[in-house]
Simulated scan of single mutants.
Amino acid sequence: MQQRFFPVVLLALMIMGSTACNNDNKPKEDPASTTNSALAPPAAMDYTVVKVYPHDTSSYTEGLLLHNNELFESTGREGFSKFAKIDIATGKPVKEQFIDKSIFGEGITVFDNKIYQLTYRSNKVFVYDLSTFKKLAEYPWNGEGWALTHDGKSLIASNGSSNLQYLDPATLKMQKIVGVTDNYGPVNNINELEYVDGFIYANQFETNYILKINPESGRVVARADMKDIFANGGKVFNEAQLPDPQEDVLNGIAYDSAKGSFLVTGKQWPYLFEVKFK
């Protein structure tokens, strides 16, 4: 990822060709160049910051989720990739599992008491026991892996394109593909995913946006611009706080069903923000 997030020049939503959820180039689909006037643009999704927690700046965040009131995070980059259970009060791991140093880890989800973990270009999906973190299985994966969630029946994965891939959790065989679109056409760089109350929330990599997607149609129905989240959380953004300002972009969405709020962060950010979308 080669995008400076705050407060320098932000990439436009309609960028053609970009990098991926890491520092390598990834292929893209070209979005339509003109607006389809028959389709309304996504609604603006306002938010308020409820609370701010510390976040470990060594965590190159690829996935974030809450399960049974416990926070889990997966991180990327070869040699540093892991998934961990996080103490939200400190931002530090209380239990963690590193993967092979040659592999770039990507998004995770918890399904049926198992942790599923994508990998970037290693063409593998790993499955672990939720309690012990013991590796249970390994599946082949065709192409790049970016982000992962589930709807209670299927795993839902992204690969950096405009497509969401629905997978059988038992076999990881493809069930269907849903293309994500807005009034301009296909929406690329679909990243970190969270399924909430019949909608999919996603980071759009290399932008400030969190997208709310109708999973049946693939339409982006609402969009939150998070460019001012530091200021809205009462924090002064300082690039010196980021280990790699060029790449430390917005990435990470977890839903707290008990509070009706979301936890949002970025790669190697110093903060984890609890927000409520309006």
Results as ranks from 00 to 15, higher is better:
M1V: 11
F5Q: 13
P7G: 06
V9I: 10
I15L: 13
M16Y: 10
G17L: 06
D24S: 12
T35H: 09
P41Q: 09
P41C: 11
D46Y: 13
D56W: 03
T61C: 01
G63R: 02
H67K: 02
L71N: 04
E73R: 04
E73C: 01
K82R: 06
A84P: 00
I88Y: 01
I88T: 03
G91I: 05
P93E: 05
P93G: 04
F98M: 07
D100R: 05
S102R: 07
S102Q: 05
E106W: 15
E106G: 05
V110K: 01
F111L: 05
F111R: 04
N113Y: 01
Q117D: 04
T119D: 01
Y120M: 02
K124N: 11
V127G: 12
F133E: 04
K134F: 08
K135S: 01
L136N: 08
G143F: 04
E144I: 05
L148K: 00
T149G: 09
S154W: 04
A157W: 02
N159V: 00
S162C: 12
Y166M: 01
Y166R: 02
A170D: 15
A170P: 05
A170Q: 11
L172G: 07
K173T: 12
I177E: 15
D182M: 13
N183V: 09
Y184V: 07
G185R: 10
Y195A: 10
Y195R: 09
G198T: 14
F199W: 10
F199V: 07
L211K: 08
P215Q: 12
E216G: 13
S217W: 11
G218S: 12
R219E: 15
V220Q: 14
A222S: 15
A222F: 08
M226K: 13
M226L: 15
M226E: 13
K227F: 15
K227T: 11
K227N: 13
N232Q: 15
K235D: 06
A240E: 14
D248S: 08
A254L: 11
F262L: 14
G266N: 14
Y271E: 08
Y271G: 08
F273R: 06
K276Y: 12
F277G: 07
